[in-house]
Design a protein around this nucleic acid. Structure first.
Lengths: 212, 212
DNA sequence: TAGATTGTTAATCGATTAACAATC
DNA sequence: TAGATTGTTAATCGATTAACAATC
């Protein structure tokens, strides 16, 4: 149903569509028009119709979109029904936050394990997930291949850890370190960055600009 | 020196320029040409020159850019020398990660305090920063006005907490909750979101697409 | 049927890239 | 001086918005 190459701009809006549609669905809303959704989300109706039409025809003239159906279609497009597996590298504060608070399951992921060198953590569980020593990664991943690795290790070991993950065959790295990973050396592994510092500095730009 | 309205696309690249220039500076590199920097960053030389020219003339024909100077200019543009103050709302795992691991100072911020309802935390310090009860926020902020609030509270209290922050006069909210804040009701407060879920789903789209 | 709303084509707007005169 | 490299103008490319025929 996908029509040729989808633009990155469209792709980055999909999770937001999902979030809004999920909210509407939970609120019991059955149908919505592109213009009502646009009002909700601060977009134009035109853009929403254009975006969705990249993937298929999900609406109906004179009616709009069925919220549950559209939510499901977008979930599919986002790969939420593929039940990809994740491992977490680094069970410090941030890794612990993901382990204990992030609802991987809700987004269609299975969280398999975490790895940390801290002897006080190895062998214990956090958020119901077992922590292993990185030395046991090869063995663990042989038995439980991971699609994704979440990288929450200290910056200085970010690159080697990313390379190890790539060598073990993960398909994507969710990078929380403030370090730029050398994607060229990561053999086709997709990298998605959450750069706290970049985000904070962007915000700072805007508030500084407002003041001057 | 700023020439009219700067496009959002340019602004979002500035922190990345800063990161790279800081790396070069630490590595002792004195000068760099737009094409060398472009090679480093995976951009075009043209784009770099175009971007920088929005803010001034920082280079020199036949020479390129002085790394230290350019790094400093970008730091200025990003407001890193304004020493804005920050408070953290919510000292759970994520708040704790910010308190203990995020180098606010390095980016020109002063972290003033954190707030949490947990009686086991109130009155203690994390990462050298004191934790207060949210009931004491009004009093604290009177004495120590905050420019920025980092929102790391549970999703269900995200909106009311954001509104309180806005009422107390913060200029920006750094939103880590997976909740969309009602910016219209936040009276000019700038919001910058770190949506973990959106990021993970975007990554999932790409690895799912690769597989199909 | 009449009104509403889609999906799509065309028009506009914005962002990136290319080219080059200016000059260090 | 000759070579390198900037800042800027023009050309291209991509993304958003507007318009409208199709149709539920």
């Amino acid at each position: 149903m996908r029509k040729g190459k989808i633009s990155p701009a469209v792709i980055r809006r999909l999770p937001r569509y999902y979030r809004h549609l999920d909210g509407l669905f939970s609120a019991g809303v059955v149908r919505i028009s592109s213009s009502a959704l646009a009002g909700n989300m601060g977009l134009t109706a035109s853009q929403i119709r254009q975006d969705l039409s990249c993937f298929g025809e999900f609406g109906q003239q004179g009616y709009g979109y069925n919220v549950e159906r559209l939510r499901g279609e977008i979930a599919d497009i986002l790969g939420m029904n593929r039940h990809h597996t994740v491992v977490i590298l680094g069970a410090g504060n941030l890794g612990k936050a993901l382990l204990e608070n992030f609802p991987f399951q809700q987004y269609g992921f299975r969280l398999e394990a975490a790895f940390d060198i801290d002897p006080a953590l190895v062998g214990t569980k956090l958020g119901g997930v077992r922590i292993y020593h990185p030395d046991d990664m090869a063995e663990f991943l042989r038995g439980h291949p991971a699609d994704l690795g979440a990288l929450t290790v200290p910056g200085r070991i970010a690159v080697p850890t990313a390379k190890r993950l790539a060598a073990f065959g993960v398909k994507g790295i969710w990078n929380f370190t403030n370090v730029e990973l050398p994607e060229a050396e990561l053999a086709g592994v997709r990298v998605e960055n959450i750069h706290f510092a970049d985000s904070l500095l962007t915000l700072n730009y805007f508030i500084s600009e407002d003041q001057s």
